[in-house]
Simulated scan of single mutants.
Amino acid sequence: MTYAKPGALVIEIGTRQTQMHRWGDFLPCAHVSRCRYDTVFADIAGVSRAGEVPPMSEGHMGIHIGKRATRRILALVDDALAGLPAQASAV
């Protein structure tokens, strides 16, 4: 984000595990770069019981991006693209 253009969209995708242990690492960088910052919560990969959050001592678990998270990410990108000027078509 150091070289991002002001107004660039930054989407931090995480889980309950990252929320509890390191959430918001990208917010200060996005702020300094004057980027737009948003967050999306996804499921923890490999965790079958809802609400279960493995401790970091077990290692950082992966992310499973389900349908709700996918819709949210696409909505954020669509909103960001809607605000851009139309590109001239290539000849």
Rank of each mutant, 00 (worst) to 15 (best):
D43A: 13
R72H: 13
H31E: 11
P54Y: 01
T18S: 15
G59D: 00
A82P: 02
D43P: 00
L9S: 06
W23Q: 11
E12N: 08
F26C: 06
I73F: 05
I63Y: 07
A82G: 09
D78R: 15
G59F: 02
R72W: 03
S48L: 08
Y3G: 11
A42R: 03
Q17N: 05
W23P: 03
C35P: 03
G24F: 06
T15C: 02
G83Y: 01
A45S: 08
Q19E: 14
R72I: 02
A30R: 04
D25W: 03
K5H: 09
I73N: 08
A90G: 08
R34N: 11
Q87T: 13
P85E: 11
L74F: 14
V32D: 10
P54V: 00
I13W: 07
S48M: 06
L9M: 10
A75Y: 11
M61Q: 10
E52L: 07
M61G: 00
P54M: 00
P28G: 02
E12A: 11
V91L: 13
H60W: 13
T70Y: 00
A82V: 05
E12F: 04
M1S: 14
A90M: 11
A4D: 07
P54N: 01
M1V: 12
L74N: 15
Q17A: 06
P85N: 10
P54Q: 00
G59K: 02
G62I: 02
P28M: 05
Q87A: 15
A30V: 05
Y37G: 08
P6T: 02
S57F: 00
K67G: 01
G83Q: 15
M20I: 07
L9K: 02
P28I: 08
M56K: 01
T39F: 07
V53Q: 01
D43E: 15
S48D: 09
I13T: 10
H60R: 06
G62K: 06
D43F: 03
P28E: 04
P85F: 06
E58N: 10
A86Y: 04
R49V: 12
A50F: 04
G59W: 04
G66D: 12
F26Q: 08
E52T: 09
D79Q: 14
A42E: 05
P54E: 04
A90Y: 12
I44E: 01
L76Y: 11
P28S: 05
I63L: 11
A30L: 03
E12L: 08
A42I: 06
A8C: 07
A86V: 15
M20D: 12
I11F: 10
I13R: 05
K5Q: 14
A50H: 02
G83R: 15
L81E: 14
L84W: 14
I11M: 09
T39I: 09
V32M: 07
I44R: 02
P85R: 09
E52V: 09
V40I: 13
H64L: 13
V40C: 05
T39L: 11
R72K: 14
Q87Y: 11
L74K: 13
D25Y: 06
G66E: 03
T70A: 11
R49C: 00
G83S: 12
S33Y: 03
L81I: 07
T70M: 10
P85G: 12
R49N: 06
H31C: 04
V47Q: 08
R71E: 13
Q17D: 07
P55G: 03
F26M: 12
P55L: 02
I13Q: 10
R68T: 07
H60D: 08
